[in-house]
């Protein structure tokens, strides 16, 4: 197994007196394409928000790019496509180019302007997700699947080493979901980007992912797709049914 890009130790999180995460040990190896699955309310989005620093764990420690969380400053290394990206205000007047350029805002930094290099990067990211012919179109006029690609381009433009996607295929039709996974697979193998994907469609995901983790308050399973598919119904009911304090690590 490769070195971990993220490792969480003994993480717990409570939201409004409800335990959302219960003593989680979680490792995301570098180079993985990990599918994170589990029932609604199982803590998947919470886990991601903890990684992104949008929320703080009640206890436990997070190591991220080999640094303790508190010392980590290199947020450019992480790209994020949120659940909400697709529910942005469709009337917002922005071109594809403008939306993707936002991914560079923080990296370029305060009081600096985009130069030719940055502009080339933006165009390259748009090209990577196959949206070149729409570069100067209003993003609100595109289809759901196309918009999703634009948001991936926005996450890619700052050359992240880790890309986190929170249920990006919600509202995207089957055929586009397939193409979407192919794009992710390409990013994972050709661009060597580590992927962490929160998803519900376990079917398509098992074809492309290298790792699968099941989360329902505790981490119930972490292994490769073959191992996941071998899980018995009994094991799966543990994941989706009553929470059991069982942490499985197949490494």
């Amino acid at each position: 197994m490769n070195e971990p890009i993220i490792s969480m130790k003994n993480i717990s999180f409570t939201y409004e007196h409800k335990q959302v995460l219960d003593h989680i040990d979680f490792i995301l190896p570098r180079g993985a394409f990990m599918g994170l699955i589990g029932p609604n309310g199982g803590g998947k989005t919470t886990l991601i928000k903890l990684i992104l620093g949008l929320m703080k764990p009640d206890h436990g420690s997070i190591t991220i790019f080999n640094k303790p969380f508190e010392q980590f400053k290199d947020w450019n290394k992480i790209g994020f496509v949120s659940q909400k990206s697709n529910s942005f205000n469709k009337g917002f007047p922005a071109t594809v180019y403008e939306v993707v350029s936002m991914g560079l805002t923080a990296k370029v930094g305060y009081l600096r302007f985009f130069n030719q290099k940055h502009k080339a990067k933006i165009l390259h990211a748009i090209d990577l997700v196959g949206m070149s012919e729409y570069t100067y179109e209003n993003v609100g006029n595109l289809s759901g699947g196309q918009q999703q690609r634009v948001f991936i381009a926005r996450a890619l433009v700052s050359d992240p080493e880790l890309l986190i996607l929170d249920e990006p295929t919600v509202g995207v039709d089957y055929e586009n979901v397939q193409r979407f996974y192919e794009l992710l697979h390409e990013l994972n193998t050709k661009q060597q980007i580590t992927l962490l994907l929160v998803t519900h469609d376990t079917g398509t995901m098992t074809e492309y992912a290298t790792d699968i983790a099941c989360l329902n308050k505790s981490l119930h399973f972490h292994g490769n797709p073959e191992e996941y598919l071998e899980l018995s119904e009994h094991d799966l009911s543990k994941v989706y049914g009553h929470p059991v304090n069982l942490v499985t690590h197949d490494h």
């Binding site: 450019n76 949120s82 305060y110 700052s158």
Partner: peptide, 22 residues
């Protein structure tokens, strides 16, 4: 003009702006 890109990024998606370090 100095803060155009930050203001624009923030206006479009506050969460994304925060995550990216603005």
């Amino acid at each position: 003009s100095l803060f155009y890109k930050e203001l624009f990024t923030l206006s479009f998606d506050e969460e994304h702006a925060t995550v990216s370090g603005i």
